[in-house]
Simulated assay, not measured.
Amino acid sequence: MNKIILNKGKDKAAWQLHPWVFSGAIQQKVGKIKSGEVVAVYNFDDEFIAYGVYNNGSRVAVRLLEWNPANEINENWWRLRVQKAVNNRKHLLKADNDTVRLIFAEADFLPGLIADKYADFISIQVHAAGVEQVKSIIVDELVNLLSPKGIYERSDLKSREHEGLPDTNGLLWGENPPEFVDIVENGIHYKVNIVDGQKSGFYCDQRENRYLTAQYVKGKRVLDCFCYSGGFTLNAFREGANEVVSVDSSALAIETLKSNVIHNKFDASKHTAIQSDVNKYLRSLGEQGEKFDVIVLDPPKYAPSRSTLEKASRAYKDLNRRGLLLLESGGLLATFSCSGAMDIDTFKQVIAWAALDAGKEIQFIRQFTQPEDHPVRASFPEGEYLKGLLVRVL
């Protein structure tokens, strides 16, 4: 087998089961190693550490898979890993919830692979060259385990550039998904566009947070920002919100949301859907003197890396300041960050600064995180990306 030898003193993280070996940690490559091939990783003293998949064009040069030298990385290994990931989530699939993340990359010891189940269809994303090599095995095992109608790939990801992989979208198995797949989450129906929607089609990582936030909205006026297809909006209506204003910059998202409101037989006369830049719209609401009882801020990733954290912090602060200005005493702000580079303590500090600038006194009354189908592997804390706060204005 091809062999990677690490520089002296650069093996600690690998011994501690962290799945990434950076290119700067490599002292020597033994053999003609091609991207996507399995390698054995050794320390400077020639002691075996783990098996992994190599990529010569990525900063993450080796994605580690297996630390037991007796467990060969073959077809059966990949199938067993897929089986374990899926079986750990089967209890989440119920009559009132047919949507779940089946595989969450490094957290499931399958770095570079995402798989989401949307009713009878599966959407996958491949981020790494190693998974690209065994994609047919992954698909076959998912078919064996779940018998979907179809499996569709949405690998149009910037991360693939670093892996030397082109974007690729298309059907991998079975039948093409319809324009909209009807899914159920928390008993609410959504029309999901797997082919052209954001990410793999839907944000199932907010499933629990949508439900929890909605417990505070009965009889209230709610503003749902970055609403996408209406997760927070629809949960709010189900729990008795008196009025909901939903805002997103995407025309497709707004049209899908309107359809979802009607599809669930909620009162469309209580709903206003606005296609607009959220910051611009919040500014205009402030100028008009509008007020809300509950506001949801669920923006896209502002900090894709630690190098962008300072700039992102300013963006989060300004966004939340504008939101807080629309709340009076007793009002609630449910605010989120999906930036892995921003930890919860930093996020709290940013919200505190936003409150200070807005002239508001606040309390943090609940913390939100990602659900159990997005687990955080103990040796890979970077997998904890979603955090949120429920803030009360005093």
Rank of each mutant, 00 (worst) to 15 (best):
I124C: 00
T168G: 09
F232Y: 11
I194E: 08
R392S: 10
V296T: 04
E382H: 05
S313A: 07
R81T: 03
L356K: 15
R89P: 11
K3F: 01
N193F: 01
L93K: 02
K12V: 03
S155Y: 08
F380V: 04
V30I: 15
W78H: 11
D45M: 01
V60W: 10
S329D: 13
Q125G: 12
K317E: 12
T256D: 12
W67G: 04
A355E: 15
L282A: 11
W173I: 00
T99F: 00
Q198K: 04
V30T: 14
V391L: 04
L145M: 15
V391R: 06
K10L: 03
R79E: 12
E106D: 15
T213W: 01
F364P: 11
V376R: 06
I137K: 00
D357Y: 09
F104W: 04
K301F: 00
L356E: 14
L257W: 05
D182N: 14
P381W: 07
V126L: 06
Y190K: 13
A251K: 04
A358M: 08
R89E: 12
F226M: 05
I103P: 13
V60E: 14
I254T: 05
K158M: 08
K348F: 02
N235G: 06
V181R: 09
E243C: 00
E361M: 09
G388Y: 03
G36S: 03
L394E: 11
Q275R: 11
V143Y: 04
A303M: 04
A352G: 10
V376I: 12
T308D: 14
K10N: 11
K149H: 06
L297S: 07
V143F: 02
E163K: 10
A352L: 13
N56G: 13
S284L: 10
A241E: 06
I295P: 03
Q206P: 07
R306A: 15
V62Y: 13
P177F: 07
E161H: 09
L6M: 08
N2C: 12
H127E: 13
P177H: 07
E310Q: 14
R59E: 15
K29H: 00
P148N: 12
V350N: 08
V181I: 09
G330R: 06
M342W: 07
I295K: 02
E37Y: 08
V134T: 06
A268I: 10
S259V: 03
P178L: 07
K3R: 14
A268S: 13
W15M: 02
E287P: 00
L252W: 02
S307Q: 12
G9A: 05
S305Y: 03
I103K: 07
L17W: 05
P375F: 08
D298P: 00
L165C: 10
Y316H: 07
I5Y: 08
R321M: 13
Q363W: 04
A119E: 05
F48D: 05
T233L: 13
F266Q: 01
D224P: 01
D96G: 00
A251F: 02
A236L: 06
N193G: 02
L327T: 03
L297K: 03
I188C: 14
I114A: 14
F237L: 14
R89V: 08
E72G: 00
D120W: 00
T346K: 06
E328Q: 06
L17A: 07
A119V: 00
D343W: 11
L93R: 01
G52D: 10
I33Q: 15
I295M: 03
K10T: 00
Q367L: 13
K12W: 01
Q215K: 15
D205E: 07
A61S: 15
I73G: 05
